[in-house]
Amino acid sequence: MTSPQDFATLAADYWSTSIVDIHPGSIKIRGYPIQELIGTIGFPQMIWLMLRGELPSDGEARLLEAALVASVDHGPHAPSIAISRMAVSCGLPLNGAMASALNTLDDVHGGAGQQAVELFHAIERAQAQGATLAEAVETEVDAFNASHGKYLPGFGHRFHPIDPRAGRLLHLVDEAAADKVVSGRYATIGRAIEALLRARKGRTIPMNIDGATGVIYAELGFEPELARGIFCLSRAVGILSHAWEQRGRAERNKGPMPRQMPYRYTGAPERHFDGETQ
């Protein structure tokens, strides 16, 4: 017969975690009493501690914070932001609007950072197997295109000829590499991809926000899936801000475009039911 102690042990093992240790009057995050962290570390450090188990260096925290700041918003036409506004106008509370918006951050809208890190890692693995940087870039870019189509995550932008965020982020990576905070090898890989695209297309296809933050997440040692998760944390700020702004507007059932703008109907012309089925 199973004893109460056996059930207690089973439950403890079932919910075991190395992240947080909570008892009455005590909360420890990765071993640190929460009261020692409050007012002492910033939110980027807290994210790092939660995900990685240790506190980052000051240089690592600055790079992570830069990536978080850069990705918060991209205007009301960005699908996740637009959905947050429409959701609020339909009566959802802020948390519901945020959940609706965050659920759109999948492979197409929100997944490019993760995909860029995966591409960078593939190029790095090819180099480790003996390929030169140029050979590895060409091979892995072609392999990615063969598997996913012509779109290359992290490069080019549908709106910006040059993404104003990317250059600043890469400059910060270069500074961190000079200070030995990161290796700089993923920035080198990213620029090598730019060089390949320029040679093939005869024009510059610059790195965008997803490529630049992908470089940062790879340089900082975050796994590809965490690159998307951290992007979601960042974009949640913009989603919340737009949802809150929408709360202050007297608009109901906001659609994807103004009601005064017609859409195009492409179905059958008007017809009438004669009461018979074929």
Rank of each mutant, 00 (worst) to 15 (best):
R191V: 08
L37Y: 05
E270V: 13
I47G: 05
E223R: 15
V182M: 10
R259F: 04
E138V: 13
E270D: 12
Q278K: 09
K180Q: 05
L64C: 01
S89F: 01
P93S: 10
L63G: 03
E65W: 12
V181P: 00
S26P: 02
H148K: 05
R165Q: 06
G248L: 00
P256R: 14
R235C: 07
A99Q: 07
F120C: 02
Y186A: 04
V237N: 12
P206Q: 09
I27V: 06
P224L: 07
Q127L: 09
D142F: 15
L63R: 06
R264D: 08
A192V: 01
R249F: 12
M86I: 02
E138S: 06
L133I: 02
R271W: 12
L170K: 11
D142G: 10
P76K: 09
M46K: 08
L102H: 10
L94S: 08
H148Y: 04
T132Y: 15
R198Q: 14
I216N: 02
A236S: 07
E245C: 00
P153Q: 07
E124R: 03
M46H: 11
I162S: 10
A12E: 10
F231H: 02
M50E: 06
L226D: 13
F43G: 03
F155E: 02
G25R: 09
T266R: 15
F222M: 12
L51M: 04
G154A: 01
D58Q: 15
I22C: 05
R252S: 01
A70S: 04
I19T: 13
G202V: 02
E65I: 12
G156T: 01
S84P: 03
M98N: 09
L10D: 06
D163H: 06
A101K: 12
A70P: 02
Y263F: 13
P56F: 13
R249E: 10
L172T: 06
R235K: 10
I209R: 09
R247G: 04
A178C: 05
F43L: 02
E65G: 12
G238Q: 14
I29G: 08
P269A: 13
A187V: 05
G229I: 14
V108T: 13
G211E: 02
L172N: 07
A134Y: 07
P79M: 13
I162Q: 15
S241P: 07
H272W: 12
E54C: 12
I230S: 05
Q35P: 11
V137R: 10
E251P: 04
G59T: 00
M98C: 11
I216K: 03
L102C: 13
A146M: 08
A101L: 11
D13G: 11
A116C: 01
V141F: 04
L10T: 04
G110R: 09
A82F: 12
G91C: 03
H77E: 15
W48N: 01
Q246D: 00
D21E: 15
F144Q: 03
Q129K: 11
Q246G: 00
A250M: 09
H109E: 00
S183R: 09
W244F: 13
N253H: 15
H272N: 10
A87D: 00
E194K: 07
I83Y: 13
V237W: 15
A227L: 03
S84E: 04
G110A: 05
H109I: 05
W244A: 08
A11S: 12
E225I: 15
R235H: 13
F222T: 06
A128T: 06
A134G: 05
S183W: 10
L51S: 02
M1A: 04
